[in-house]
């Protein structure tokens, strides 16, 4: 039985710099795993490798029996991995609902002919896409529903943009969600809410989640397992309690380079 998600000996170099160095990671279905490490440790690079934005120089990535290396990002999304971005990247001029409907892209199949002639199958599909998009937005309570549906995304507040980005990723009907610093820039109340939300994503919607986080309260609050990396290499792994006592981790955060302490 192949693992749900597994990366083996991933290596990615940029010129002389090795951003990711023989990185191994295994995730079981239904887990919430957080990825932490000092700035520049290679966390986002790992996301980019997994989602196909970069191709690794060495190593392999398996997801539910598929080898992801060499696939393009849209194929990987089609297989069931969706992500958000560290700097929220929405389609700012599309409406809130349209943003999420774009997320449903891989779950539809209509093309130019469908759009022009609009047979019943096309209309059913559009209705389904819309309905599911609305359902994803409903997950966030009233924050993104009602009149918000037809607002362009640039009208949203920062926290709502983060939520919309997650809704859009959810709409791809992925199995594995990669969230890149979901609470960055949020105030404590919003952060608390996001922490609960990540838990609900798994409990209510059945997503497996890998997320990058700097806020240790979030990491502590929700992760089943914490993976710590530094210089592109895994230096510790375990529950929050285990990891927070690990001397490699303390060294990475506090020792050697005072500058990089998070």
């Amino acid at each position: 039985m192949a693992a749900f998600f597994e990366s083996k000996e991933l290596v990615k170099k940029f010129g002389g710099l090795t951003a990711v160095n023989r990185f191994d990671l295994k995730i079981e279905e239904g887990e919430i795993v957080s990825l932490i490490g000092p700035n520049g440790a290679g966390k986002t690079t790992i996301f980019n490798l997994v989602t196909g934005f970069y191709s690794p120089d060495e190593g392999a990535i398996y997801f539910r029996g598929h080898d992801l290396v060499g696939m393009s990002p849209h194929q990987i999304t089609g297989l069931g991995i969706a992500r958000t971005f560290q700097t929220v990247r929405l389609f700012l001029n599309m409406t809130v609902l349209e943003n999420v409907m774009v997320g449903q892209h891989t779950r539809g199949s209509s093309g130019v002919f469908g759009a022009i002639f609009r047979p019943p199958s096309y209309r059913a599909e559009e209705a389904r896409i819309r309905e599911r998009a609305e359902a994803q937005l409903g997950f966030f309570g009233t924050r993104l529903t009602g009149y918000r549906h037809d607002q362009p995304a640039f009208m949203l507040s920062y926290a709502n943009r983060r939520r919309l980005e997650i809704a859009r990723a959810m709409a791809t009907e992925a199995k594995l969600l990669l969230l890149d610093e979901p609470t960055a820039g949020m105030n404590p109340r919003e952060t608390q809410e996001m922490t609960e939300l990540i838990g609900r994503l798994r409990d209510e919607r059945g997503f497996t989640i890998l997320f990058i986080e700097h806020d240790m309260r979030v990491v502590k609050g929700v992760s089943d397992r914490v993976v710590v990396i530094d210089y592109g290499r895994q230096i510790a792994e375990g529950t929050y309690a285990e990891v927070s006592q690990d001397e490699h981790v303390l060294e990475a955060y506090l020792g050697r380079k005072t500058k990089d302490a998070a």
Binding site: E58, G59, A60, V69, G70, M71, S72, Q75
Partner: peptide, 14 residues
């Protein structure tokens, strides 16, 4: 091994 795989098993695209 990975290099050969990259060349030969890379996904086929038109």
């Amino acid at each position: 091994a990975t290099i050969t795989r990259r060349i030969f098993l890379k996904r086929f695209s038109w």
